[in-house]
Design a protein around this nucleic acid. Structure first.
Length: 571
RNA sequence: GCGCCCGUAGCUCAGUGGAUAGAGCACUGGUCUCCGGAACCAGGUGCGUAGGUUCGAUUCCUACCGGGCGCACCA
């Protein structure tokens, strides 16, 4: 049990005792905050319990506070407690708690920061889920980074996390992809011949260079011109036999998906499950889900289509699930997909969507409700838009012409670590201005380098210590109480807050907290480093500082691990 | 028109029902006989506007203003 839990329990007991002796009366103790106060003069922890109890107790906050203190006894770890301001309880702990806690960090090592507040609950995080029709762009990059870091955070907090990518490999965008590839294929095939220049490209096709390259690759390595003609192909795209068309579709889709997987792997993002939309259609799950909704009475027919009564569940309007032509909508497949998720036993299902999909939340939650699941078990995190900036100007991009900046280009430009860090350092609710110049600068202006530098510096200290023949001290043989300077105790306190930061980031689904924490930790370390020599004449001080630096290194590694950013030993 | 997100320091952004609202960049000036100067230290009358709830609002509610994104039998 850490200090905060002990203190919290002590307060609750004191309140109960105060009620028992009749100091005041309350029905139940409401939630109160117990936090590190903004000024260190206010102690190590401050609680607002008296203020939140004031109304119920029908007594002024400071009177309630006094009664709580009178009934708290004198725990051995407590230096003193005071009533302050409007009724805060400020707790000043004996210095030993800091050092005991620091020693525990060393013992926990790479496990420090892990907790079990998730209680092993099975949680699914679905993210990126891009159509396999082209390369990932920077918007997907934000989703990939946030999804992967959030998953790491929640895993560290004791959730059983499954990372999943939903492959939109059904529907007309796949036909559109195939049409585009075939057009490029025919153009390549016709090159130099009499048909050259006569092949038209589909108006709504994918114009990217990657499609041209893909078509050329198919011509060179998969379907030769000769084979194409033998299998019934011609320069008329409309006359291509279904079997041949499907062969193109399969090749195109596989290549696009392989490229996506590669880009994500290069970005350090992995998935536990790749879930194909197509399998939902082919396995009958889409129609099965629609039938289930129908049997529950939430489907009706209008204008030849089948509609979901999503307005019964808070949506603005009802939604078509089966079109007039009998083809299920995207929503129908998504309903089947989410039904499948819940059937698989996930307690919470978290989806990361781009801001352009926020209008979809209400209908999806409605559908989940209609299926009989608690809509709150579906959480949708909306990621606001990303804008790239270079030389102080916004880098314009256009998805339609395929001239957008791809994720792989971005990684090549600024590096994996910087890209990951920049994508998660802002709240998901905020639009992200991604400064390319800053991200690739190898100076302390760049927060990624700043943090990594702290780690490299620590490694450098230890390298030199080793060369000098310094023996690494054992925690239990070290008197840590010599670490009494403000720069030392502040660093220790920051180290000790890591577990709580991780828990908070997990519970609130806020990965950017980890990025800020890492930066704050690095800043306190650099400050410590500039004020205190680790290798020094005083053996007692040296031992204790080595322990402190070791603890810093542990936490830096752990937090960078969660961020998926390298912790280099040299830079 | 309706819905979601945002509006905090010159810029990019944290934060939060409570005690003196923070960080980075930029700018200015300092720190080095010593563990990596990719560092440190110092410098600041900012919560869009107006109401409301509250003992207390930057935080919650309402309206308005400004910016972004949506509002399909597309995905």
């Amino acid at each position: 049990m850490d200090m905060k839990e002990i203190l919290s329990k002590t307060i609750e007991q004191a309140v109960a005792q105060a009620v028992k002796v009749g100091a005041f009366s309350v029905e139940a103790v409401p939630d109160f905050t117990l936090e590190v106060p903004p000024q260190k003069e206010f102690g190590d922890y401050a609680a607002n319990v008296a203020m939140v109890l004031s109304r119920q107790a029908k007594k002024p906050p400071r009177v309630v506070a006094d009664a709580i203190l009178q009934n708290m006894g004198k725990p051995e770890w407590l230096e003193r407690a005071e009533i302050a301001g409007p009724g805060f309880l400020n707790f000043y702990l004996k210095a030993t708690w800091l050092y005991d806690a620091l020693a525990q960090v060393l013992e926990a090592g790479s496990n420090y920061g892990r907790s079990d507040i998730g209680n092993g609950a099975r949680v699914q995080v679905e993210f990126v889920s891009a159509n396999p029709t082209g390369p990932l762009h920077v918007g997907h990059g934000r989703g990939a980074a946030v999804g992967s870091v959030l998953s790491n955070i929640m895993a560290a907090a004791g959730f059983a996390v499954t990372k999943e990518f939903y492959i939109n490999d059904a529907g007309n965008q796949m036909d559109c992809l195939t049409d585009s590839v075939i057009a490029r294929y025919l153009q390549a095939l016709a090159a130099g011949g009499e048909k050259a220049g006569t092949i038209e490209f589909p108006e709504n096709g994918y114009h990217g260079r990657d499609i041209i390259e893909l078509a050329e690759d198919i011509l060179a390595n998969h379907i030769s011109g000769e084979e194409f003609l033998t299998r019934g192909g011609s320069f008329d795209p409309a006359a291509i036999p279904a079997e041949l068309y499907d062969a193109f579709k399969e090749l195109a889709q596989q290549e696009k998906l392989a490229r996506i997987k590669k880009d994500l792997a290069d970005f350090g993002v992995t998935f536990d499950v790749w879930f194909s939309e197509k399998t939902l259609h082919e396995g009958g799950a889409v129609l099965g889900a629609a039938r289930e909704l129908q049997s529950k009475g939430y489907i009706y027919e209008k204008d030849g289509a089948l509609w979901l009564k999503s307005t019964d569940f808070g949506d603005d309007k009802d939604r078509v699930v089966i079109r007039e032509n009998g083809v299920p909508t995207y929503l129908a497949a998504d309903i089947a997909y989410h039904r499948d998720k819940f059937h698989r036993g996930f307690k919470q299902v978290i989806n990361l969507w781009g801001a352009d999909h926020h209008g979809y939340i209400a209908r999806m939650k409605a559908a989940v409700g209609a299926l009989g699941f608690d809509p709150d078990r579906l959480e949708v995190i909306i990621l606001q838009m990303v804008s790239l900036y270079q030389n102080g100007e916004q880098v314009k991009m256009s998805k339609r012409t395929g001239q957008g900046v791809t994720l792989s280009e971005l990684i090549e430009e600024v590096g994996r670590d910087a890209a990951r860090f920049f994508f998660i350092m802002r709240s998901t609710d905020s639009q992200l201005d991604f400064d390319l110049d800053l991200a690739k600068s190898q100076t302390s202006d760049n927060p990624v380098y700043y943090i990594q530098y702290a780690h490299a510096r620590i490694c450098s200290i230890f390298r030199q210590a080793k060369e000098a023949g310094v023996v690494m001290p054992a925690v239990r043989d070290t008197d840590l109480t010599v670490l009494a300077l403000p720069v030392e105790t502040e660093l220790i306190k920051k180290i000790l807050s890591f577990k709580e930061e991780t828990e908070l980031a997990a519970l609130r689904r806020e990965p950017h907290r980890m990025a800020r924490y890492a930066h704050e930790l690095a800043a306190l370390f650099h400050s410590f480093y500039n004020h205190c020599r680790v290798m020094t004449d005083d053996p007692a001080v040296q031992k204790a500082r080595i322990i402190l630096v070791l603890a810093t290194q542990i936490v830096l590694r752990n937090v960078l691990g969660i961020l998926g950013v390298d912790a280099p030993e040299k830079m």
